[in-house]
Design a protein around this nucleic acid. Sequence first.
DNA 1: TATGTATTTAAGTATTTGCTTAAATAAGAA
DNA 2: TTCTTATTTAAGCAAATACTTAAATACATA
Lengths: 124, 124
Amino acid sequence: MEKNSCIRQQADIEQINRCKDTVSELNDSFDYLANGLSLVGNSVRLKILYLLFEEKRLCVCDLSDILGMNISAISQHLRKMKDRNLLETERDAQTIFYSLTAEYEKMLNPFFEMLDKNKILETI
Amino acid sequence: MEKNSCIRQQADIEQINRCKDTVSELNDSFDYLANGLSLVGNSVRLKILYLLFEEKRLCVCDLSDILGMNISAISQHLRKMKDRNLLETERDAQTIFYSLTAEYEKMLNPFFEMLDKNKILETI
DNA sequence: TATGTATTTAAGTATTTGCTTAAATAAGAA
DNA sequence: TTCTTATTTAAGCAAATACTTAAATACATA
């Protein structure tokens, strides 16, 4: 397991202990936030999120058509994001429309703006 | 393949075509941004990034000790982030210190602030 | 030079993720 | 009720990812 293997002379024991405390205190937050970011860190889901940001609401069928992907595959992506509260749904007869939740629209806004300006590939 | 299967009567053809255009125009940006976010969307890497945000610089050995993980595993995470320009290195004798690049420190700041306040689990 | 320390890299394995296919559920219309 | 449309769910497979172990590289010092 190689734990506590940092034996270099200059190692700052206080710093390491402070960091260990931080990690154990915030451990659940790290997991939760990382899980949320991993949902956004998939190009299919990022496209869905951005399209919902621009169009306000879309159904599985629309997204399947737009992205050229299987309805089932899209549905499974949507479910993951709904489960994690990135998305919410409203039913309109047989059609279920997905939209961004207000809190995630706000949180993801800086990224959407980068995409809006299509500046990603130049600035990062 | 089930493409162009969105045949519901209310489907807004103009909206769908507009979305298709957006996706094809921004396709590389989506991939690039999603790839960057997927690096952050891993709890080990998120911890590393946050620790570097707080401590300014740490070496593989420190991080291995703090996170209780194999040095090799940490080194491989660091490499991925350095390759994608989230991190930079400076050598100090035999020790290689990693730190956040200025642009990603800025980009990730809102998330670090949430962690700082340890408000993740309450507010999201 | 040889030895020790710090780190990276390569190869293999195990887990996770995304997509496909097929079946199931849900709602409206005939 | 039966048929059609819209969507979700379950099961299986293939690709991607994270971690382990062992070997390699890089630098410092005796």
